[in-house]
Amino acid sequence: MFNVVVKNKQFQNITVIADVALTIQPGERIALIGPSGCGKTTLLNIIAGLDEEYQHARITNKKLGYIFQENRLLPWLTIQENILLVAPGQIEVCSALLKQLGLENVAHFYPEQLSGGMQKRVSIARAFINEPDLLLLDEPFVSLDEPTADGCRRELNDLVRLHQTTVLLVTHDIEEALTFADKIYFLSPKPATIIHTLNLREMHQRPTKQCLLKEYPHILAGYIT
């Protein structure tokens, strides 16, 4: 189980995150939704240990996977080399993953030679090769067109189910969250706090975007009333 408590995280004397406490059960899929600039990425970076100043909420001793908004692949390494960089020697696991993601024919290509969707798949493969205990996703599909994004979502979903991966997804796409997550936390604008929790496992039917917005018209802007 992961407990993440972030209190009073400041950036240049402005409080970005006021108070956010998350409990993540193994195998659970959590989505964080909040308006732009509310500190969602900051939160993920704190959890991943990327925040130099705020170190006491980082997750240590656990394998992490992180799929960034941009793919952050190394242009001077081939697809296979990019993936093996984080998992030296695991050539067989790598080929299996590449095959599963439909990338087996481009293993020796360079990232620049691939489309955006394929590059995204490479970064998915890189995140899964070490079977992470916690997978962090930072608005992973915003830069893709809808059909491509849907394809990537399906493949990510399959992998998550297959490996029973624990996932923390940051997004501002409510439909993405409603279809993917077990639990959704809604965040307020800066300084961020949790304003609402939606436990989708306890509901016998997942609500649609329309009925959620009917009940809470301003929830995507970060206001519950």
């Binding site: 991943a48 990327l50 992490l64 996977g65 960034f68 190394l74 960089l85 984080v86």
Partner: peptide
């Protein structure tokens, strides 16, 4: 810095970092 962050998340060794991410 984004590539450096990537290296940190995946806990790459110092050698790997300098050889494959920094120096290139």
């Amino acid at each position: 810095p984004k590539l450096t962050q990537m290296a940190k998340v995946y806990r790459l060794s110092r050698f790997t970092y300098y050889r494959f991410i920094y120096l290139p």
